[in-house]
Simulated scan of single mutants.
Amino acid sequence: MSRVYDFSARMLDGSDISLSAFEGQVLLIVNTASACGFTPQYRGLEALYRAHQARGFSVLGFPCNQFGRQEPGSEAQIAEFCSREYAVTFPMFAKIEVNGDNAHPLYRHLTRERPGLMGLENIKWNFTKFLVNRDGAVVTRYAPTTKPESLITEIVSLL
């Protein structure tokens, strides 16, 4: 059985990283976009990260342009936007696809482990969130409308 830590991905700066670098941490994995109605959630995601990172928590952001082309920029533009507009310091990865034949293997795993409504595996929109425990198991899937600040209790219970 795969764990989140068994995958690797490319960071915004172009470097490849194994998610085993986050082994033992509680993770909130989110597909993001810079021009979405949910983009202000970056603020809440960053607040969660800053409040709990010292206890072994991390947010992992995966930009995606599959929903309304709301992430059209390059990796450099995404990094600059996230820094300038939301002071994002949590790890941000290179743009990926989360649905379809070219879906990143991590997202295939996440959606298999925690399907959405009616058992559908596809991601419905930007800012779908997956909470992962310290063992690398996917615990919960949250809809894009779920605000990051509403996840504090569940995150703290896993820390």
Rank of each mutant, 00 (worst) to 15 (best):
R108D: 10
I78E: 08
L117G: 00
I96V: 14
P115M: 06
F57T: 02
F81L: 01
E46K: 06
A79M: 09
A51H: 06
E85W: 03
T128Y: 04
G119S: 08
T128K: 05
S74Q: 04
A137E: 15
S83I: 00
A54Y: 04
T111K: 15
G61L: 09
Q77H: 07
V59G: 12
A87I: 00
V98I: 11
F81Y: 15
F130A: 07
F127S: 00
G37V: 06
V26R: 12
S83P: 02
Y49K: 06
I29M: 05
R134Q: 14
T140N: 12
Q25S: 11
G100L: 12
N99D: 13
G119Q: 02
N65P: 07
K124R: 15
P144T: 02
A33L: 08
E85A: 13
G116Q: 09
A79I: 00
K124C: 01
R141M: 00
I29W: 13
E113D: 13
P40L: 11
E97Q: 14
R134G: 13
T128F: 03
R84Y: 11
A33N: 11
H52M: 15
L60M: 15
I29C: 11
G68W: 11
A35C: 03
G44P: 12
E85C: 09
Y49C: 02
T145M: 12
T146M: 07
P105R: 13
L27T: 09
E97V: 00
A76I: 03
G68M: 07
K124V: 14
S74V: 01
Q41P: 05
N65V: 05
Q41R: 01
Y42K: 00
G68Y: 07
F62P: 00
R112Q: 15
L48C: 11
G119H: 04
R43M: 06
V59I: 15
T89R: 13
A87F: 11
S58Q: 13
T32N: 06
T146P: 05
